[in-house]
Design a protein around this nucleic acid. Structure first.
Lengths: 234, 234
DNA sequence: CTTGAACCTCCCGTCGGGGGAGGTCGTAGC
DNA sequence: GCTACGACCTCCCCCGACGGGAGGTTCAAG
């Protein structure tokens, strides 16, 4: 087995004897040590941990139990990360097979949005947002989406009509816009933070996010800038 | 981000422009490509797969879906491997806390036996053996263990009494011994193979396996050799 | 003009080995 | 005694996806 040379190199398992010509001779004790190493490796421990536990177990019988308990915890963590990925990919595949037809461009855009999302929100914030979305339920999200589409149309009309950003109608639109967004943000100061992060995200990346929407990306970019102005003016 | 240099090196994401002084300038298109790369990486795909799917997705819209489906399958596999490890470690910890007291030496010996076990049986064979053990149930296993202890005592007495290996009593002991072992082996030729592997394992490693038993390892080694002789004689 | 941050290239390290080159050793058959 | 042939030896480069740092250049602000 090639690994034996590796174990020798790092000093984890050195053959106790050598023949005069230099061939390694593994004694019975060496073999038993090898079995322990292999078994512990098979449980997912690193070679360093294996070395430590084999060194410690002589004077500290608890170290092995502690290490195994720790490993169990790490495996649980790992399993959960895998579960998260599974759910995400499952969602993507389901979205990819939705009634709008198999539009791979949309799938790609969704990927972009995911990435941007992860750049602007911390993992914790994403967790909170997911909780809120879950609390709203699918119908709540759908309702908000429709309301929001109305607000977008209204904003685009304002823009086309040349209504200035400090006009009361623009400020009122911003108020309703932010209230709608507020449904998705957590309560208290945490909500203010996610809301601010969301605005930064929109400001910097309206093109990427807009790509997944039914309106032209550049018009959405204009609208976002317009709302930002109105918010400043308000 | 350091990864950008790496993506550049492997040609996955090369900045379309450079300033005269050599600084990378990422265009809007580059950025969107970066978002896709990051998102796909975040789903656990390798950079090679990301590169492939970004190259293919232009003319083969299905490749992304296929890759995601494949990835889902791999994650399932991975999750199952983790589940196996979890169960194994859980069993070990439970054994470590059993009424015989916290004997770390026994735990170590169990590890050795695990390793030897994995060397002599293929993964498939181990699966069959686990099935059989499950079919017997805990009480069946316990009953067999007690019967087996009786056979061991009987064999050790034969040895002490100097009964030769070709004596009918020895051959009868072997017959009952093998019948008992047979409960744990699968049916048909597969069972013969696992039984042969088990005998090889005992012959080569009676010390390691014997260490986890209530009898001295060297006496068990003698018994195994004795039974082997009796089997040849029979 | 200076200064500090940002960026550049180049190189070594991670983890657990795999694979191969090129040489030596051990043993079995003739 | 000779000759195969396999098993073993050391040394070195390879994988993935970057991280970290050395040592040098460039940029933007004051």
């Amino acid at each position: 087995m090639r690994a034996l040379y590796h174990y020798d190199e790092i000093g984890l398992l050195v053959a106790s004897e050598r023949t005069p010509s230099g061939h390694r001779r593994y004694t019975e004790r060496d073999l038993r040590r090898l079995y322990r190493v292999r078994a512990l490796r098979g449980l997912g421990l690193s070679l360093e941990e294996v070395a430590d536990v084999l060194a410690d177990s002589a004077d500290d019988p608890e170290s092995l139990r502690a290490l195994l308990a720790e490993q169990l915890r790490r495996l649980d963590e790992h399993a959960e990360r895998i579960g998260v990925l599974r759910r995400r990919i499952g969602d993507l595949l389901r979205q990819a097979g939705d009634p709008y037809g198999p539009d791979p461009e949309r799938l790609m855009t969704t990927l972009e949005v995911m990435s941007v999302f992860e750049t602007y929100f911390t993992e914790e914030q994403r967790g909170r947002l997911a909780e809120r979305r879950e609390a709203l339920g699918p119908e709540g999200v759908e309702a908000a989406r429709r309301e929001w589409a109305g607000l977008v149309e209204e904003g685009l009309r304002h823009l086309a009509d040349g209504i200035p950003a400090d006009d009361p109608r623009a400020r009122d639109l911003v108020r309703r816009w932010d209230a709608l967004a507020g449904r998705f943000h957590p309560e208290g100061p945490a909500g203010a933070e996610t809301a601010a992060a969301a605005r930064r995200m929109w400001r910097d990346n309206s093109a990427e996010i807009g790509g997944s929407l039914p309106w032209p990306a550049e018009r959405m970019a204009g609208l976002v800038a317009y709302l930002e102005q109105a918010r400043q003016a308000g």
